[in-house]
């Protein structure tokens, strides 16, 4: 069953056709890698799917049309994304970064804060315990009280993933989770993704680290010049000469 179907997505910036008629299907519970050279339109695809940019085409997520929804509504449907450059909430603690995430918290409504203090505090306690659990899963629980802005680049990557998971998504869009991360941490992140998939989560991952992404993915989609060039199983894609050519920019 497909959790996400995108049909004929288009996004043009002036004369630049960033995404030019792209279709993609993502089966529930799988890991799909999205690769392609710089400027292929991968991040624009992410922006279109997550609602941060408007283009044309149809997007259906869990049976519901989402191409006209604003990003926060799409997130509430259970789709979450991370960003190529991690966006830590600098002057908030690591724990606060996580506790922000769960959607539909009682205490996010001002009248509940004023009138139903006890219930808000109860839920806050649950959210705190859950957030600590996620921080432990990513092994950054010792950093809970640090400012997010004081973390290293790799730690910020982990924090961003942890924060995204805290909203209990069914589909995660990860934008270059392995870039700028040392090999040990990279293996650790792969491990986490695998474990979460076992738990039923679906992933769409943009990545330039081809060995890492082919190792983890069930299926690879290759984009070039705003279109899907080819797709298939990682082993097949690795053998394809035209994919290699696109990456190296040569004619072979």
């Amino acid at each position: 069953m497909n959790i996400l179907t995108a049909r004929n997505l288009k996004k043009h910036f002036g004369g630049v056709k960033a995404v030019d008629g792209c279709s993609i299907d993502i089966e529930s519970g799988t890991i799909v890698g999205l690769i392609g050279p710089n400027g292929a339109g991968k991040t624009t695809m992410f922006n279109l799917i997550s609602g941060f940019e408007r283009g044309s085409g149809e997007i259906t997520f869990k049976g519901q049309r989402t191409d006209n929804l604003s990003p926060f509504k799409i997130a509430r449907c259970g789709m979450v994304r991370t960003f190529q450059i991690p966006r830590a909430l600098t002057k908030m603690s690591v724990l606060e970064n996580l506790m922000l995430a769960p959607t539909m918290q009682r205490g996010e409504r001002i009248w509940n804060v004023c009138l139903r203090r006890k219930k808000v505090l109860e839920q806050e306690q649950t959210i705190k315990e859950k957030s600590m659990g996620i921080l432990e899963f990513f092994e950054i629980d010792d950093l809970r009280d640090e400012y997010a802005g004081a973390l290293s680049g790799g730690q910020k990557k982990l924090l961003e993933m942890a924060r995204a998971i805290a909203i209990d998504p069914s589909l995660m869009l990860l934008d270059e989770p392995f870039s700028g991360v040392n090999p040990t941490l990279s293996r650790k992140i792969s491990g986490h993704i695998d474990e979460l998939r076992e738990g039923g989560m679906t992933f769409l991952i943009i990545e330039h680290d081809i060995p890492a992404v082919t190792k983890i993915s069930d299926r690879i989609v290759v984009m070039n010049e705003g279109r899907v060039m080819t797709e298939g199983k990682p082993e097949e894609i690795k053998r394809r000469k035209d994919v290699l050519d696109v990456y190296l920019g040569g004619e072979g």
Binding site: F52, V80, I110, V113, I167
Partner: peptide, 26 residues
């Protein structure tokens, strides 16, 4: 009381980077 609540936490996240709370459904 307001700023120490989850409501206040959302405000602070907007101050830091409003893309994040919107990606998280706020």
């Amino acid at each position: 009381r307001l700023i120490q609540s989850p409501w206040g936490r959302v405000l602070k996240s907007i101050r830091e980077d409003e893309t994040v709370p919107s990606a998280l459904g706020k």
